[in-house]
Measured scan of single mutants.
Amino acid sequence: HNLTITQGKLFFHYNPKLCLSEIHKMEEVSGTKGRQERNDIALKTNGDQASCENELLKFSYIRTSFDKILLRWEPYWPPDFRDLLGFMLFYKEAPYQNVTEFDGQDACGSNSWTVVDIDPPLRSNDPKSQNHPGWLMRGLKPWTQYAIFVKTLVTFSDERRTYGAKSDIIYVQTDATNPSVPLDPISVSNSSSQIILKWKPPSDPNGNITHYLVFWERQAEDSELFELDYCLKGLKLPSRTWSPPFESEDSQKHNQSEYEDSAGECCSCPKTDSQILKELEESSFRKTFEDYLHNVVFVPRKTSSGTGAEDPRPSRKRRSLGDVGNVTVAVPTVAAFPNTSSTSVPTSPEEHRPFEKVVNKESLVISGLRHFTGYRIELQACNQDTPEERCSVAAYVSARTMPEAKADDIVGPVTHEIFENNVVHLMWQEPKEPNGLIVLYEVSYRRYGDEELHLCVSRKHFALERGCRLRGLSPGNYSVRIRATSLAGNGSWTEPTYFYVTDYLDVPSNIA
């Protein structure tokens, strides 16, 4: 807008934040220059609390790290170098490059900038070799853009010569660093050979998330399962459950009422301010606690030095998902009996873990797994792929695949051998790939016309006998059925096997 004052003059007093240069501009645009008398524009009460600059400061050096910015700028000295009290560095987070010096300023003089007072450097006698002032900004957020400017702080001049310097606002972004852990990993099994893994992005990506790394490792069953005799009275049979499938998407929606109208769909109840505040506090606490764990609990591995020492970490090797089922080394339970199943799973520490690289999504279907087997899954978020990966501390989750139908069934015939004193040795093959492992066998036998009897055969007993022995049988026709019990439950009964026990007292003698 054009402003013209045809008559009258300007009068400025007691404006401590208004620089004289701005008042002189007002004289020019209003056409009143030359009308004012000496005392109409006070030299001592206008701009006496402001830094009124008329020179431009330029930054000469900028260096960044993930949490620091090192700045240096060209030296500046007023005509009387004693008038320079120091520099004021202003900075704040700036997602967009549209910041002005006066953003967030209120009537009390406060604003949204963080201000650092910096002492002037030592003055050199040689004007050509003056030290460049600077400042190291610490405690910054990774991968965050900051708006920065600097200006001088000078003393009051009796001659009211307006001098000083100020830089333009520059924008500097800190470097990326390792992201925080992925949030809320959930693993479920939808079949006997697959596990579905879902997660949420890290709360602090500290860069642009480029991919996720998912490692999985087959877990050995508890050692007590191999040692305890679950045929003993009072000892509860062990059981394991597989990871249940995901709930429906509708039930997972946030901010939804727990109660549904019987007449149909209901609208979600909005969260109160107290609920939102509580969630923010919980989120802040979780982030602080995660940072504490990362800094205190997890110790970084030592990389190899120039002395030739090897990095103890196993090298990563990509495998196809079809090879995942046989990740671990199978060892027989008892070496003397080769027909026992290889369900003991000690994992070799030198073995390469299978892994998958996930790009542009937060889910993965891990296939080719062994049925009813526990897996430990390790999830890392990465925001750099080359020249070397920059990934987060791992988040861990466990899951067990679903049982395989008929995996616990005894394959092959049940054979028998009759000894003296009416002892019958029953023999059968253990299931080759049971659900988890076989903890015991149930032997059901009966003599024709009598009630059915049951015998429990422990895992250890089966390994020693290759089956079991029935003792003290009365003469007669017998039928026997056997079924295995694994961590997933009972298998199917075998087809009945028949044998006849004679009275050993009636056996004919070869003595003449």
Rank of each mutant, 00 (worst) to 15 (best):
G207P: 05
G207S: 15
N208W: 11
N208K: 15
T210V: 11
H211L: 11
Y212V: 11
F215Y: 09
E217F: 03
Q219F: 12
Q219V: 06
D222V: 12
D222S: 10
F226W: 02
L228T: 08
Y230F: 08
C231V: 03
L232W: 08
L232F: 12
K233A: 13
G234V: 13
G234D: 12
L235T: 05
L237P: 06
S239N: 05
S239F: 06
S239M: 06
R240S: 13
R240H: 06
S243F: 09
S243C: 06
S243M: 13
F246T: 12
S251H: 15
S251A: 07
N255W: 15
N255T: 10
Q256M: 05
Y259A: 09
Y259K: 13
S262L: 11
S262I: 15
A263I: 11
A263M: 11
G264R: 13
G264N: 15
G264C: 02
E265R: 15
C266G: 15
C267P: 07
C269V: 08
K271M: 05
K271L: 11
T272M: 08
T272Y: 11
Q275T: 12
Q275A: 12
L277I: 11
L277T: 07
L277D: 08
K278V: 12
E279R: 11
L280N: 14
E281Q: 13
E281K: 15
S283M: 15
S283G: 04
F285A: 14
R286G: 04
R286A: 13
R286Q: 07
R286T: 13
K287L: 07
T288H: 06
T288E: 13
T288P: 07
Y292V: 09
L293G: 01
H294L: 08
V296L: 07
F298K: 02
P300M: 15
R301K: 06
K302S: 11
S304Y: 09
G306L: 08
T307S: 12
G308A: 11
A309G: 12
A309S: 13
P312T: 12
R313S: 09
P314F: 08
S315N: 10
S315I: 12
S315F: 13
K317S: 12
R318H: 14
R318K: 13
R318Q: 06
R319T: 12
S320D: 11
L321F: 13
L321H: 09
D323M: 15
G325F: 10
N326S: 13
V327W: 15
V327N: 06
T328Y: 12
P332N: 08
T333S: 07
A335N: 13
A336R: 04
A336F: 09
N339V: 09
S341H: 10
S341P: 08
S342E: 09
S342D: 05
T343G: 11
T343Y: 13
S344Q: 15
S344K: 08
T347L: 13
P349L: 08
E350K: 04
E351R: 04
E351I: 15
R353T: 04
P354K: 05
F355W: 08
E356V: 13
V358G: 09
V358Q: 11
V359N: 10
V359K: 11
N360F: 10
E362Q: 13
S363D: 10
L364P: 00
V365R: 09
S367G: 09
G368Q: 07
L369H: 01
L369E: 01
L369F: 04
R370S: 13
R370Q: 12
H371K: 03
H371I: 09
H371N: 03
H371Y: 12
F372Q: 03
T373I: 04
Y375K: 01
Y375I: 04
R376D: 15
E378M: 06
L379M: 08
L379W: 03
C382I: 01
N383E: 02
Q384M: 11
Q384V: 06
Q384E: 06
E388W: 07
R390F: 05
R390A: 05
C391Q: 02
V393W: 11
A394S: 08
A394G: 15
A395G: 14
S398R: 13
A399C: 08
A399I: 10
A399T: 09
R400I: 07
R400F: 10
R400V: 09
T401K: 00
P403S: 07
E404M: 13
A405E: 13
K406F: 10
A407R: 11
A407V: 09
D408R: 00
D408Y: 01
D408L: 02
I410M: 07
I410S: 08
G412I: 03
G412P: 05
V414R: 01
T415G: 04
H416S: 11
F419Q: 04
N421G: 06
V423P: 02
V423T: 14
V424C: 08
Q429M: 15
E430V: 07
G436F: 06
G436A: 12
L440K: 05
L440P: 01
L440V: 07
Y441T: 02
V443L: 08
V443Q: 00
S444G: 14
Y448G: 00
Y448C: 09
L453G: 11
C456K: 02
C456N: 01
C456Y: 03
C456Q: 02
V457T: 08
S458D: 04
S458G: 06
S458V: 05
K460P: 09
K460Q: 07
F462P: 01
A463W: 11
E465A: 10
G467L: 03
C468Q: 06
C468E: 01
L470R: 01
P475T: 09
Y478E: 00
Y478C: 00
S479C: 03
I482C: 03
R483V: 02
S486G: 13
S486N: 02
S486V: 01
L487S: 14
G489I: 08
W493T: 02
T494M: 02
T497M: 13
T497N: 06
F499D: 00
Y500P: 03
Y500V: 13
Y500T: 08
V501L: 07
T502Q: 07
T502D: 03
T502A: 14
D503E: 06
D503H: 04
Y504E: 15
L505V: 09
L505G: 13
L505A: 10
D506W: 10
D506R: 14
V507Y: 06
N510Q: 08
